[in-house]
Design a protein around this nucleic acid. Sequence first.
DNA 1: GTTGGTGCAAATGATTTGCAAAAGG
DNA 2: CCTTTTGCAAATCATTTGCACCAAC
Lengths: 150, 150
Amino acid sequence: MSCDTDSVAVLRRAEMKLTPQRLMVLSALRHAQGHLTAAEIFEQVRAAYPYVDISTIYRTLTALRTMRLVTETDMGSGDLAYEWVQERPHHHLICSGCHRVLELDHGYLERLGDDLARDLDFEADLHHFAIFGRCAACRPAAAPAASPGL
Amino acid sequence: MSCDTDSVAVLRRAEMKLTPQRLMVLSALRHAQGHLTAAEIFEQVRAAYPYVDISTIYRTLTALRTMRLVTETDMGSGDLAYEWVQERPHHHLICSGCHRVLELDHGYLERLGDDLARDLDFEADLHHFAIFGRCAACRPAAAPAASPGL
DNA sequence: GTTGGTGCAAATGATTTGCAAAAGG
DNA sequence: CCTTTTGCAAATCATTTGCACCAAC
């Protein structure tokens, strides 16, 4: 597929040296249909290239993040999740009950972003948002919002 | 003021033992006009009670968070920020340029929350949100959103 | 050849935990 | 008293860094 040749172009454009490690990190990110942690990328790359070090993964991710090719998001798991930047941003609804992750269309946050820009002159970075809460399935079982709780 | 007696009531209601350490953590949180890190709370408490340990601060914060009396938010500083839960939630706009923190009225996110509930049956936990971006002052100097960047 | 990138190993730093002593109810 | 909480010290665990070697360009 065109991903690998494309990744080469991506690195060239970014004036980064073209190393197999970086190509594999890029490949992992671009083939993932979602977010990956540094450890997950590490596993994937190591499967084909056993000598990579986790620090190389982090260094590559930092570089890619700096040039805004990947997003870094705290999904609440203790480590950070990385995702290749798509043309149309999308976001995640994370259920605190079942830990399921739902995708959220950018439209919802676009509205919020417009409000913030218009009213407060604040240009919000809404490329990749994680919103926690409760999905329909987990709502009745868990404490409803209005309850005083324990 | 009523904060201390009120804190006593808070702990009683929560069926937590009433220790000076906990009262001081509560006091720090309730008097702060914003968010505090665990380390900041630690400093404040230690000033009056030199033998407290940071682990006690964390344990107290965990307990308070479990009973939804404080919020825990990643403000992007590497550590987590804690804030006493107010009657009316408010949120933070964090400028990536000058690191200034602006308060955001709950109305903006209420709208989003309503949308998510109506359209997706997802009850978002919007008690305390941190939105990163660029304030008006930092915008012209930094890369505008529409630019292709590096 | 230079410069930047990598592997390795060790450091960092926030947060957590085991355990015995101390304090709350 | 009995249980929970605390202080201390040590452990975790993701992420970062110093450094010598190696590979792109």
